[in-house]
Amino acid sequence: MDITPELLLELLVAALIVIGGLFGVVGSYGLAKLPDLMTRLHGPTKATTLGVGGALLASMVYFWARDGFTFHELLVTLFLFLTAPITATMVAKAYLHRAYLDDENGQQALPPTGRRYGWASFDAAPESEGSNPDSVEAPRRADS
């Protein structure tokens, strides 16, 4: 069997698919196996990103070799990289809200903020000027 560029490309696509599949299944196994929600968050947010990333890269290389340069798969990867942390944080907040808000001692289970104010899921933002993150710096107008 000769080693041709086609064979190398095929090898690359196959390797990417296999790596992606392995990481995908490990991430979901973590979701099923780990003991509580905060640890379960670690599995899907990381392993699955590389799992989908592998499948997307494989698709990109495959169509690149077949039909010429293509780059729109990068858009899905980019979108997933931007949204995965946001969904993870939102799920964590929903969990903390449910698990700790009704519980009298619950909030003591979280470490202190080291500030005068508590965590944003439980405490209202301070009203006074200068301590709100949006008014820390002088407002920068777009047309200034």
Partner: peptide, 25 residues
């Protein structure tokens, strides 16, 4: 908890995207 179910649904969507890409190939 309900957060576990939301997380499971989100992961299902991500795995579904991967399957769609593989179907494309």
């Amino acid at each position: 908890t309900i957060a576990d179910r939301i997380l499971a649904l989100d992961t299902m969507v991500i795995n579904g995207i991967a399957i769609l890409m593989l179907l494309g190939i």
